[in-house]
Design a binder for these strands. Structure first.
Lengths: 146, 146
DNA sequence: CCTTGACCTTCCCATCATGGGAAGCCTCAT
DNA sequence: ATGAGGCTTCCCATGATGGGAAGGTCAAGG
């Protein structure tokens, strides 16, 4: 199987397949004499695993760990679960941040006339919004970019 | 005011202040003879506006538009509101995606024993999870990285 | 047998917002 | 005058992804 067919079969773009190979997420596969990459069905399975994990928002680093556990017949399911629950917590933290933004924004937008006059609570809030609602909240919020 | 003081006063790091200047979000400010940037209080206000907008998740591009509207005494509040509501919709879309991930993951994690045995529904799902629940859903999901 | 188009290869660049760090200059307090 | 700490510019890295160029390869049809 060519990389193009592998991409179609796995749902991972050819670009990304090469990238995953480069960063070591998938081992270098076989090559034809001309240098074309050749994929086996087990390579495809691995790529599908990766794609599914990406769809669930796992980082490449986490996927590497999951792949290792997948291959490890003597794994402890606790190790898998730990990765998953940590990831869930990350996602929930992001959701919390977004929810807070949305609630502030919606409140402001609801009070904006949205007509052709200049007065606008949204602009007002940005222009004189308090800088320091709760300092440590900001500090906690800052690292995680939304 | 030096850039360091401006950073402390605005909540925007010196690095980012220089960056915003470079991409034109803030105009080049005055300089001392030695080349040090000097900030006025109105510069600080602008930086605070930017920081507040960043905290609400606006992109740099959107902030540029908001800054222009802020400066425009003849603006229509409808223009501001449009930017805000579009942004709200973006955030809500992200939230929806994350929520879906979390719900899948939580379901899987709830059924994982988390002990020292290898059996694990999380790994099983990744390994043989359907690739194509709803193709167009995936397509819609893909562009927006979480 | 040769051409053509669709593939493949590598390499470089861009995104977006942010931080790290080096090399060198400036300023202020001692 | 000296040293600490600030400032300057410049380059690099992040994470996951796409775009595109230059050039090699393969298969099908004339």
């Amino acid at each position: 199987m060519n990389i193009g067919e592998a991409a179609a079969a796995s749902g991972v773009s050819a670009k990304m397949i090469r990238y995953y190979e480069q960063i070591g997420l998938v081992a270098g596969v076989a090559r034809t004499e001309a240098g074309y990459r050749v994929y086996s069905t087990s390579d495809i399975h691995r790529l599908r695993f990766i794609r599914r994990a990406r769809d669930l928002g796992f980082s490449v680093k986490e996927i590497g760990e999951l792949l290792a556990l997948w291959a490890d017949r003597g794994r402890a399911s606790a190790d898998v679960k730990r990765i998953a629950t940590t990831h869930i917590a990350d996602l929930e933290e992001k959701m919390r941040q977004i929810r807070e933004m949305v609630s502030t924004l919606r409140h402001l937008a609801d009070h904006c006339q949205g007509d052709d006059r200049p007065h606008c609570p949204i602009i007002d809030n940005l222009a004189r919004g308090d800088l320091d609602e709760e300092p440590q909240k900001r500090a906690a919020r800052h690292p995680a970019r939304v």
